[in-house]
């Protein structure tokens, strides 16, 4: 475990010294929250999707996709610069590598969630609207855990499977999908068949569960509640999460051999 922690520390330092991390993982989610707050404010405040309780869980889920990008970049760069090859000849095991990257993604994810919630809290104060109740804020961390793990795994997976030139491109497709198909800023509940399609992808179920936790209302002014679909959403996101964990471990182990 010491080797895992040592490797995680190195990864954390590498990322903290990369300005792109601040732009993508912190700057972008904060900017998105303020952007939609102003759009809502200056368009009459009639868009429930842009209200704090609805927007915050969506932006948190969306912001995790930047963790995927960040991890994909560091993993692919480590492979490209032969840094990993050098470590393969050390007594480090494959789980030291995977956990060393995953722990960093997890810490950044938690920090990102805190910053998104703090920003949303400030927005709620400015706009004088009710903020998410404290127990629900804490519950939101738990609700978001599966999608965070999914993004961490996808980051390691793309970094392992692609080089540092193509991994960002693949990630940007997933970032776009996360934003659009997650319904972060689009009222999917008004889109009929398209919503049904999105329900079976990992992004919308995560946003949906987050909105139940935050006590948001949807575009049709109906309160998100723990209904039959919530059970389907939990199942869906867990299936994707488990599949991504298995695929990442398998791909990393396989590529570790071929990289050598």
């Amino acid at each position: 475990m010491n080797k895992t922690i040592n490797f995680a520390k190195r990864n954390f330092k590498e990322l903290l010294r990369d300005p792109l991390m601040y732009v993508f993982c912190l700057g972008f989610p904060i900017a998105m929250l303020f952007l939609f707050f102003f759009i809502n404010k200056y368009s009459g405040g009639n868009t429930p999707t842009f209200e704090v309780k609805s927007l915050t869980p969506g932006i948190i889920v969306f912001s995790y996709s930047f963790i995927m990008l960040t991890l994909a970049l560091i993993v692919s760069k480590d492979r490209q610069t032969f840094f990993l090859k050098r470590l393969y000849s050390s007594p480090m095991k494959d789980y030291d590598f995977i956990l060393g990257y995953a722990i960093v993604g997890f810490i950044i994810g938690i920090l990102q969630t805190i910053i998104c919630l703090l920003t949303a809290f400030i927005i709620a104060l400015i706009s004088k609207v009710e903020f998410i109740a404290l127990p629900n804020v804490l519950l939101l961390f738990v609700t978001n855990l599966p999608i965070l793990i999914l993004n961490i795994c996808l980051g390691i997976l793309f970094g392992t499977a692609f080089n540092d030139k193509s991994a960002p491109g693949i990630c940007s497709i997933f970032i776009s999908l996360s934003g659009i198909l997650g319904g972060c800023w689009m009222p999917l509940e008004t889109m009929g068949g398209f919503e049904t399609f999105c329900k079976f992808l990992p992004f919308y179920p995560s946003v949906y569960l987050g909105r139940i936790t935050s006590g948001a209302t949807n575009a049709l002014k109906v309160l998100y509640k723990f209904d039959g679909y919530a059970v389907v959403a939990i199942t869906t996101i867990f299936v994707y999460m488990i599949a991504s964990v298995i695929l990442t471990i398998f791909t990393f182990k396989k590529n570790m051999v071929s990289d050598k």
Binding site: R10, K13, E14, R17, D18, T81, F82, F83, K85, R86, S89, S90
Partner: peptide, 15 residues
């Protein structure tokens, strides 16, 4: 009991 210095410098660049 072994170690290697590969052809590529292979160090952590931001450390």
């Amino acid at each position: 009991i072994i170690d290697v210095s590969p052809q590529e410098t292979a160090v952590a660049t931001n450390l």
